[in-house]
Design a protein around this nucleic acid. Structure first.
Lengths: 143, 143
DNA sequence: CAAATCCCGATTGGTTTAGTAGGATATGAA
DNA sequence: TTCATATCCTACTAAACCAATCGGGATTTG
């Protein structure tokens, strides 16, 4: 029951952009260095973020990526869903009448998966990139 | 971000035992038939449940498995953790000073993963097998 | 003893993961 | 105009994981 590196790296990338793209495009290379990730692997992740309107790309020299909305308008859930697909602890939870639940005469466990899904959704949709940056400052202040 | 069949089948198996093992041992074969699962695959899952004290086995003809505690004393979380490992949406959340978080100078996202983990934990540890059986009856009544 | 049943290890085919390789395209700066 | 810096795109791959299957062995009841 894990998120893959796509979600994790993607969130790091978005945070990095939130911190650094205010004054101009940020290259994947610099993000990869700061976050200690493979640039080439980020290259594979970032198109999904672009196609879904979370970041904007500027091609050519001195190009890079910038956030397409303000950090307070982007939720963790937006990023996760784009990179990991829909939040669903099992495949079938929405399809009571399909194969998965036709097996057992009554899908007792559905309740469990739905509650898990909803609780995860609540969390990721209530935290914005701005919240995370603020959290960071708070923790640094506390040091 | 999915649970595997281990957790899903295991929970079905436990529910089946909760329904059927009150009066004596239940064979994997009969569970596999009722739940429409592979008997052999269940055979691979059930040792973990036994070793962790959730079920008890009776060997030999007319043998099978029974619950080792009452359904109200077994939580969904117990079953999930035994079959899927600890609930942790990422690997590193407990080790701020280890590799994973040594990469970035500050692990901003940790907050996110901890909250997700806690919310899942809350759900699975608050639902017992007995609760699920009751839920089933309720739904059947509503029909 | 035979059948039912749990127990155990090995193997397998398919999918996913976490990348790497290599190049095409665009663009600002020298 | 050329070069360095970027994004963009399509393959490829090695390793791990998943969901089983296979083939037996040990134990107990009838």
């Amino acid at each position: 029951m894990r998120f893959s590196t796509r979600g994790r790296y993607g969130l790091l990338l978005m945070i990095d952009l939130a911190q650094n793209s205010a004054r101009g495009p940020v290259s994947l290379k610099s993000i990869a260095e700061r976050q200690n990730l493979s640039e080439h692997y980020l290259e594979q992740i970032v198109p999904d973020l672009r196609k879904n309107g979370l970041v904007k790309s500027i091609r050519g020299a001195q190009g890079g990526y910038i956030l397409n909305k303000s950090p307070s308008e982007i939720n963790v859930g937006d990023v996760i869903r784009v990179l990991e697909g829909p939040i669903a602890p099992v495949e079938c939870e929405n399809q009571l009448d399909e194969e998965c639940c036709a097996n057992t005469d009554f899908c007792v466990n559905r309740e469990v998966w739905v509650k898990i899904r909803d609780s995860i959704t609540d969390v990721v949709d209530s935290i914005s990139l701005a919240d995370l940056l603020q959290g960071e400052n708070k923790e640094i202040m506390e040091k």
